[in-house]
Design a protein around this nucleic acid. Structure first.
Lengths: 240, 240
DNA sequence: GTGACTTCTTGACGTTTCGTCAAAAAATGA
DNA sequence: TCATTTTTTGACGAAACGTCAAGAAGTCAC
């Protein structure tokens, strides 16, 4: 790769970095193309060389962190242990991501709220979807194995997909709670990640996924996953 | 109230109606103040008499449907039956709202993503929060009664607040799934409301809230709630 | 019913930001 | 070294937000 091409790649990362911080600190309205260009030290025209529109840049920010999340999930899939412990490792990956990329949910929500605006390039949308699918695939595979091995006794009308959707919802909900917690007076739920952990256990117990959380302490599996798989990230996120 | 004041009130409702439809059909970007004014048949200045800014109008749309949701939840609280059947009635209220106000989640997500923009009047923000709190209060009261009566055996570290947050997350997740279902190939989860119902049951079973869904068919309670409390709305929503 | 006073409505205007594009600058390669 | 291609630039047009002074409509005492 020529030095020029490398420079262009680096610049794209820098643009994304700046946009990401701006989004988190000042919100969508204050995500200004001129300002981003100025901070990075290029002209606005150059920014439009990388991203077709403001929404496209926003989607690129979301796509980049979504790719990181998918990678974390896939790393979690390598965890060794019982099926439910392996799912706990996936939950640990979700926690790491939650703590490391506080901007992500906002970006993804905005992209979806934009009604998948035609100003976002189709490849970008596809990239984002692919990342979500990769996350689901990791969870689905583990749950399917659990169902096959008998650890997870699915009842009539229940499916592995339903279980994964539920877990995903609880996980997404943690992001919402982060906004809401300022308004919730109940101190027992002021810790979004702790609430997520507890609720995920209740949920999987509801499916009867053995060993139940009453039979085995999944905090251990979680900590082992954080240490074995995500040592650096968990450290950076303050989870260790 | 003078006829003029009445006219102004009516017009505010009409503005909200138009904005609501526009938001749903064309997305946030295409929610244009000029256009709304034109459709309603007033000038832009008049729209700004009602709403301080575009974001404020958006928040007003969200606040109006949020108030309807709170009212539905409170109606559900009057349902007669066991504690868990009463919670099933609340879930039915959530289903009705989900089906009747497809725009709402988008509006609320946008308001929150706007970083609670200072361009939204504080009263509007407060109104929105109050509605959410009213919903939580209904759920919290039922769960607290269940805990007190022994139907709901909370374990160490578990709380009524945690349970309500979990249910709320599953419920919010249904909105997300509506967007995602186009991309999910699994037909077992292509029905957002059905998945919500099943997952809520699993979740409450996980808490051990008696009678468990294996002991009692909560579809009956749900249908009774729809018929007794929400006949008109459920009909309109196509749930009956 | 009239006129003085208040409230409401209007749309042109200033401002801001998006996204474009022709011209200038830089890189490439024979 | 110079012709060709690629990249960068920033002034510009378009579009939308939000304002405000002037005018229209409503209110009310008499």
């Amino acid at each position: 790769m020529s030095p020029k091409q490398q420079e262009i790649r680096d610049r794209e990362e820098r643009l994304l970095d700046v946009a990401q911080v701006m989004l988190l600190e000042r919100g969508y309205e204050d995500l200004r193309m001129d300002r981003i260009a100025e901070v990075v030290g290029v002209s606005k025209g150059t920014v439009y060389q990388h991203f077709g529109s403001r929404d496209d840049l926003l989607a690129a920010v979301a796509a980049r962190s979504a790719a990181t999340r998918a990678a974390l999930f896939e790393r979690a899939a390598r965890f060794e242990g019982s099926s439910r412990e392996r799912m706990a490792a996936v939950e640990a990956a979700a926690e790491v991501f939650f703590a490391l990329f506080p901007h992500h949910e906002q970006a993804e929500r905005l992209v979806r709220a934009a009604h998948l605006s035609p100003k976002i390039s189709p490849e970008r949308v596809a990239a984002l979807e692919t990342c979500t699918q990769r996350c689901f695939e990791v969870a689905t595979r583990i749950a399917a194995e659990a169902a096959a091995s008998g650890d997870l006794p699915l009842r009539e009308g229940q499916s592995v997909g339903q279980l994964c959707v539920g877990l995903w919802n609880l996980y997404q909900g943690a992001f919402l709670m982060r906004d809401l917690e300022k308004f919730m007076s109940d101190p027992s739920v002021d810790d979004a990640l702790g609430t997520l952990q507890r609720n995920a256990r209740v949920f999987l117990d509801g499916f009867g996924w053995r060993p139940l959380s009453t039979e085995l302490d999944y905090s251990e599996a979680r900590e082992r996953a954080l240490n074995e798989l995500f040592a650096n990230e968990a450290q950076a996120a303050g989870l260790l």
